[in-house]
Each structure stands twice: as structure tokens, then as C-alpha cells.
């Protein structure tokens, strides 16, 4: 269980600790790393976001990554090639053509990967679990992660926030990436912002271009806040 999230979420189904949960239930002896899931459609920039977070946070947090790309080593290789994280801090999980299943219905392979990383590296502050590229219905199990980020991009169409789906609607943070492409693809960011607010209520949404902001600063700051709250 994790401490309170930094936002309100009255009207959105969520998996944070329920108000009726026993506040005196014992916490694990060793507080485990904060786990953040990163999901979103194919090509929206999940791996680029993971790389940006590694650049931004790798020097200040004990960090490791589990990737679920359908092509086992593709994403892990991308991170290694870009030199953003040492190879021993990255694990790839095969999902048997079922990226959904691996992060939601049967999370065992991801839990194994996390435990192997923790056993090999010692205590960690932050674990990023990147889902395989999927569609708008992908969400993570709360048995696997504490918070989830959903990444969409403006080139996927400015109607995406309006379409909703569990990823857009319930993610703890919605990231709209590739804002630099908006004029090229005729996407209206104000429409996306309005629709995201309508879908998500008070849940935060950030617009960014990872191509321009190589450290995904607003997302990194959001993660810093969660990590700080978790160790408080």
C-alpha cells in the first residue's frame, strides 16, 4: 500500500488505499520501491518517456526498469543503447502476445522481474514498469504498481482524450506527447486539454514534447513528488 496520492479523485474509479482500509495494518518491514507503470498505445513515446525519466532521475534515485515490449529485448536495448541506464538495471519480460495480460490479469512474470532486480541490486527507490504497446483499454493491476502513467501522442489524433477508455480516464497522470507535431498533423491541443479534463476530472494531464524536453521535466517532477511522499 502507498501513501495518499497528491491529487483528488472523487469521481474516478481508483485503486488507492480505500478510506475504510485499516490504517493500522502493518507495513512491510522494508518499504519497497515505489512502482510506477507506464502504458499507452504503440508509438506514443513510452520508451522515450522511460529514457527521459532515467536521464532526469537516474542520478538522484536508485532506479530500475522492467519492459514488456512484445519484442522482448527491443525496448531494453533502446534504453541500453541510449546509455540512460546500465544494463543490469533493466529487465525484459515476454508477454506471449498478451501485453494486457502481463500487466493486469497475470502479473507473475513482472513481479518475478521486479524481485530479481531487487535481489540483484539491493533496495531501490523507484521501479518503472513499461507495458508493451497496446490500445486505449490497457491498465495496470494495483497488485503490480502503485501509480500509472498513460502516454498518448498528438499524432495519434486529437480525439484520443475524448474517446476515453480506462487508460485515459483512470491513469494517475496522462501524458500527451509530441506536442511539437501538433501543427503538422492538425491537432488542436486546446481540444485535447478540454476533453482530458472532462474525462479525468482533477487527475493531472501534462503536455510535452520529449523530443524537445529530454528529461520530461513535468513528469519527472511528478514522480519526484510521489517518491518524496512515499519515503516520508
Amino acid at each position: 500500500m502507498r501513501p495518499d496520492s497528491p491529487h483528488e479523485h472523487d469521481d474516478v474509479p481508483h485503486g488507492h488505499p480505500h478510506p475504510s482500509a485499516d490504517p493500522h495494518a502493518p507495513l512491510p518491514a522494508d518499504a519497497r520501491a515505489l512502482r510506477i507503470g507506464i502504458g499507452g498505445p504503440v508509438g506514443s513515446g513510452k520508451t522515450a518517456l522511460v529514457a527521459a525519466l532515467c536521464r532526469a532521475l537516474g542520478g538522484e534515485l536508485r532506479l530500475a526498469v522492467v519492459t514488456n515490449d512484445i519484442y522482448t529485448t527491443e525496448d531494453a536495448d533502446f534504453l541500453k543503447r541510449n546509455g540512460v541506464l546500465p544494463p543490469e538495471r533493466i529487465r525484459a519480460v515476454e508477454t506471449g502476445c498478451c501485453p494486457h495480460t502481463a500487466i493486469r490479469d497475470d502479473i507473475s512474470a513482472n513481479l518475478d522481474a521486479i524481485e530479481e532486480l531487487e535481489a540483484a541490486l539491493g533496495p531501490l527507490d523507484l521501479l518503472l514498469v513499461e507495458s508493451g504497446g497496446d490500445n486505449l483499454t490497457a491498465t495496470f493491476s494495483k497488485g503490480l504498481i502503485d501509480f500509472q502513467i498513460f502516454v498518448v501522442d498528438v499524432a495519434g489524433g486529437d480525439k484520443v482524450p475524448r474517446k476515453g477508455g480506462p487508460g485515459v480516464t483512470t491513469a494517475d497522470l496522462l501524458v500527451v506527447n509530441k506536442t511539437d507535431l501538433a501543427p503538422l498533423v492538425g491537432a488542436d491541443l486546446s481540444v485535447m486539454e478540454r476533453d482530458a479534463r472532462a474525462r479525468r476530472g482533477e487527475l493531472p494531464t501534462v503536455f510535452l514534447s520529449i523530443a524537445a524536453d529530454r528529461q520530461a521535466t513535468p513528469v519527472a517532477d511528478w514522480v519526484r513528488g510521489l517518491v518524496a511522499a512515499a519515503v516520508r
Binding site: 515476454e94 508477454t95 506471449g96 498478451c98 502481463a102 497475470d106 507473475s108 512474470a109 518475478d112
Partner: peptide, 12 residues
């Protein structure tokens, strides 16, 4: 097959 025992990722 929905019992979450990791089988979905294996083709044997």
C-alpha cells in the same frame, strides 16, 4: 487458463 500462474507467456 485464467488462473494467474504465468502460463500465458509460454508456448512450450
Amino acid at each position: 487458463g485464467r488462473f494467474p500462474a504465468g502460463g500465458h507467456a509460454h508456448s512450450s
